Simulated scan of single mutants.
Amino acid sequence: MKELSRSANPPFVLSSRMQYLRDNFIHPPFDYEHELLEAIRFGDEAKAMDMLRKINELEAAVLATYPLRSKKNALIASCTLFTRAIIKGGVDPETAFHLSDTLILEIEKIGDVERLVAFEYEMLVQFVSMIRKEKEELTYSHIVNLAIYYIREHIFQELSLQGIADHLGVHPSYLSDRFKRETGMPLTSYINRRKVEESKHLLVYTNQPISEIAFTFKFCSQSYYTQVFRNFTGMTPRQFRLSGAKSIST
């Protein structure tokens, strides 16, 4: 049975366990890590592989008493970073988290350090493949793609048609018409749908109050968040939290 992680950390934290790993991980030089994550974000497999090799040539941090556990912890920490990189690159959060969960379960099954070393590179390829697939599927016009990227990058901030149009340097009416014509939904509806999708992980994997989750995603009230959530999912946030908890524990 998989244990639920109950954390009151900010939304950028996948779980308290993940945050602990990041806080206790001795990072390689920042520019190495930054280049690796940016290469993943943009789907550059060759560069990502090269940066990972450079990082692995450095002395590894000791994250547990036993080498096998230490290496597993290091890979879980890497998986967390890679997950955020592809979300930043445009992959749907639920899709990214599902890949992360699957890979972490696979990490836990591996019984020797040598196999874990190889698996880290296999894991990297899977993340890069997912970001490439996302970019291939996002076939809207340049201006609509830019709007989508902006929304995903600023999902925890106040978002409005006017603000996004100002950022992109276009008239709001033009952006609104173009966005609806290409995606089939109003831009404001797309924003709400993205916020609902992002909030699902917090509902299932943290004990953050629903009122705080509503505030995190800048909904004007918990009742409005509940209404929007029900419109997109057919259930309330509370119902989704309960159904998610049951599915994880089985």
Rank of each mutant, 00 (worst) to 15 (best):
A64Y: 08
V113P: 13
M123W: 12
S160E: 14
E137N: 01
E59C: 06
T65C: 06
K88N: 02
S160V: 02
L99C: 04
E120I: 11
I164P: 08
E137K: 11
P172K: 08
R115M: 15
R115W: 08
L63M: 13
K88S: 09
S78D: 10
F127N: 09
H167Y: 09
A118K: 15
L161W: 04
I151T: 12
F82V: 01
I131G: 03
R115K: 15
C79P: 05
P93C: 05
V91W: 00
E134Y: 14
H98G: 07
F97Y: 03
P93Q: 05
L103A: 06
L103Q: 06
T80Y: 04
G111N: 14
T83V: 05
L68F: 09
Q126P: 04
V128P: 00
V128G: 11
L138R: 15
G90T: 01
A85W: 06
E122T: 03
V170K: 01
S173L: 09
G90Y: 04
D92E: 08
A147Y: 06
H98E: 11
Q157F: 03
A60M: 13
F82R: 03
A118H: 14
L161Q: 11
Y140A: 04
A60R: 09
V117H: 11
S78N: 05
R152K: 14
S70P: 02
S129E: 04
L116F: 03
